[in-house]
Design a protein around this nucleic acid. Structure first.
Lengths: 157, 157
DNA sequence: TTACGTGCAAATAATTTGCAGTCCC
DNA sequence: GGGACTGCAAATTATTTGCACGTAA
């Protein structure tokens, strides 16, 4: 099996469900410590913004703006660092949807995405739609992850 | 149906097969005119490099380097312009595989991709593996395209 | 204390754009 | 000839990095 089955969310559903319904700061702190990240003020604030409202798809820029609005003083560089640290720790999943900016998904479980052309908006594909049979990975390789992006366009004019 | 079924390759298999085995410049010129692009020296040279050697996955930078090596005088900006014009004309398919650079695929037919982490290398998935049942597109939307990227990692150390 | 984090500004990387000059039809 | 195309360099956008200072353990 790949690393897919060892995602943090599935490891500890009590933590995850706590997070879903309001995630006390103390739980967030523990969560950070668990994955080896020191629970600093910035990480807790950003973690709160990220995980406090259900599944979200954000970009560095959008999280930065949200932090500004919430009067959370962080620099854009720290937002980038934090997003990458969270991703490496398995708290976030990074998505490449267009050639330019990166999106981060707070739902790290195995699922696919809709992308609305023009709106630059990402949505989870509701049910866990599986990809049909995949060919075996080439010699000496293993499948790390499968990304499926369904590009949507608004019907007619 | 979406635009997928009207890709140029499937429209005119004689053109496509000509392209596969050496694509005379005159054919390339006709192909460009067909899609509404004036066959300029640069477009023909880049088209030659792109379509003269079977299916390929290239980036703007890699095509630019290749043009330099082939002593084809084009500017990087023109490479970018040309790649986008070819993509809009349906001669290329643009792929977002990581958050940074864009890849372009000379195979515009419906197929999926392997991406080798670390190598930054793209490969076509051999058979035309279909994605399992997809949910209906949300109200007022239609599916423009489905991108599947299978991320591979080298097994063990 | 003390290594790990963070802020800031400058550095990169990828890509786009404005405009003067060039080339196909 | 005239509009479409190209080259170049400067401008943008997204992201990373270096380094002095701050802070959790």
């Amino acid at each position: 099996m790949t690393g897919l089955s060892t995602l943090p969310v599935s490891e500890s559903s009590s933590d995850a469900s706590l997070a879903r319904r309001g995630c006390p700061v103390s739980t967030l702190k523990d969560r950070l410590r668990e994955v080896g990240l020191r629970p600093t003020r910035q990480r807790i604030s950003l973690g709160w913004l990220l995980f406090g409202k259900g599944d979200r798809h954000i970009t560095a820029e959008s999280l930065f703006e949200e932090a500004m609005r919430a009067r959370v003083p962080v620099s854009l560089a720290t937002v980038y660092n934090t997003l990458h640290q969270f991703t490496e720790a398995g708290l976030l999943r990074q998505l490449a949807v267009d050639g330019s900016k990166s999106y981060f998904d707070t739902n790290t479980s195995d699922h696919h995405h809709f992308f609305v052309e023009g709106d630059e908006e990402l949505m989870d594909v509701p049910a866990a739609i599986a990809v049909g049979d995949l060919p075996a990975a080439p010699e000496g390789m293993e499948i790390a992850r499968v990304d499926v992006i369904v590009r949507l366009r608004r019907k007619q004019g």
